[in-house]
């Protein structure tokens, strides 16, 4: 099992299902009944959430985001991995060694 702080580009990532998700004012909001918490993923976080509906490597995720947004590879990789670690801390995603 991959722990927070150890996510790399070679890992694959996928949503954990079972949350109530909605779009509100262009931002993705989510209620986890299991955690008893409400989350606001924001606009970019919402895009990431949609892209990880099915299993995808972190590398592919970064590539897709770079094709949609004006961002450097270094910045995108760093900020996406940091965000994924936050999601992992909240048990909202699962991380595996890439297929």
């Amino acid at each position: 099992m991959i722990k927070s702080g150890n996510i790399s580009l070679g890992h694959s990532v996928k949503q954990i299902k079972g949350n109530i998700v909605s779009n509100m004012g262009g931002e993705k909001v989510m209620l986890s009944v299991k955690n008893g918490k409400y989350y606001n993923l924001g606009e970019i976080g919402g895009e990431i959430w949609d892209l990880i509906e099915e299993e995808i490597s972190v590398n592919q995720l970064v590539a897709k985001l770079m094709s949609n947004f004006v961002v450097t590879k270094t910045e995108c990789e760093k900020e996406v991995i940091t965000f994924l670690e936050l999601l992992l801390d909240e048990s909202l995603i699962e991380i595996k060694d890439s297929l």
Partner: peptide, 16 residues
Amino acid sequence: MKKEWKKPELQVLDVR
């Protein structure tokens, strides 16, 4: 057309 990038952040509110 590419959109502007903003650092993704997660806001958490404990409903309980």
